[in-house]
């Protein structure tokens, strides 16, 4: 293939699915996974563009995104565990104290 457009299209599709997942699931862990899916689709686009321009910088960004994702998962899951301890639930709709 001499174009990366299919990869970018797939990336957009996966991103949209991730968005829908974030907005429709109520389990905090699943929302989290959907966010990972979105990050991953962005990574795919990065790699695709890196391939298209014949440069490594896109791949570097993926590397950093992965590091950030790992950090995010560590803290995020710690938060979920902490919340679960007090609320006995991972449903984000149960966490609506901060409202007007």
């Amino acid at each position: 293939m001499n174009t990366v457009s299919p990869f970018v299209l797939l990336s957009a599709l996966l991103f949209t699915l991730g968005v829908i997942g974030v907005l429709t699931r109520r389990n905090a862990i699943l929302i989290f996974m959907s966010i990972e899916l979105m990050l991953n689709s962005a990574n795919l686009a990065f790699v695709a563009f890196a391939h298209q321009w014949g440069q490594l910088d896109g791949q570097m960004f993926v590397f950093f995104v992965m590091a950030v994702a790992a950090a995010e998962v560590a803290v995020g899951l710690a938060l979920i565990v902490t919340i679960f301890r007090s609320k006995k639930s991972t449903n984000v709709d149960d966490l609506s104290q901060l409202k007007g």
């Binding site: 968005v19 974030v22 907005l23 429709t24 109520r26 929302i31 984000v92 709709d93 966490l95 609506s96 104290q97 901060l98 409202k99 007007g100």
Partner: peptide, 21 residues
């Protein structure tokens, strides 16, 4: 005004996300 706007802040993360989208 804020009384009217307050309804938007319902504490549900998903609806905030929807607005962002």
């Amino acid at each position: 005004t804020s009384g009217a706007l307050r309804r938007i802040q319902n504490g549900l993360v998903r609806s905030y996300g929807l607005m962002m989208l």
